[in-house]
Amino acid sequence: MIENQEDRLLPEPDQISQPFWDGLHQHRLLLQTCSDCGAVRHYPRPVCDQCYSMDYSWTEASGRGTVHSWTVSHHAFHFSFKKDLPMVLALIDLEEGVRLNCRLTGIEPENLRAGLQVQVKFDDVTDAVTLPIIAPLTK
């Protein structure tokens, strides 16, 4: 993780994770899928913990999920987030069985509850970097 000129915290991808970030940049949520046993894993890593295969492909996730837990942050631990307070950070159970931990927008904090249906959106925070962001599911 690095800070850019505006001192925003940005990811520092490596060889393993680069395709995940490239996918986000194209507004696609890509997840590692084991080529041998089919297990989906996240965050990106070299080995499948189910069958120990090191072969994998990247498959596009549906982007749909439900709220597992959350926090409403009233304190920015980096000044670049002060303008966003209070902000909701949510753990999302994706349909594919792994989770995201990222911003959730478009809902009043008092309406948050476990199981709330949500979908992934894409936040182009710089020309080069896109972060996942969560919003309530719209049919």
Partner: peptide, 25 residues
Amino acid sequence: GEFEMPSGAIAPAQLYAPMARKHME
């Protein structure tokens, strides 16, 4: 640092709060 801090989940208070929330739920 790579996957959560860029979204603003930086400090232990922010990372641990969802554990406490889950326990409350």
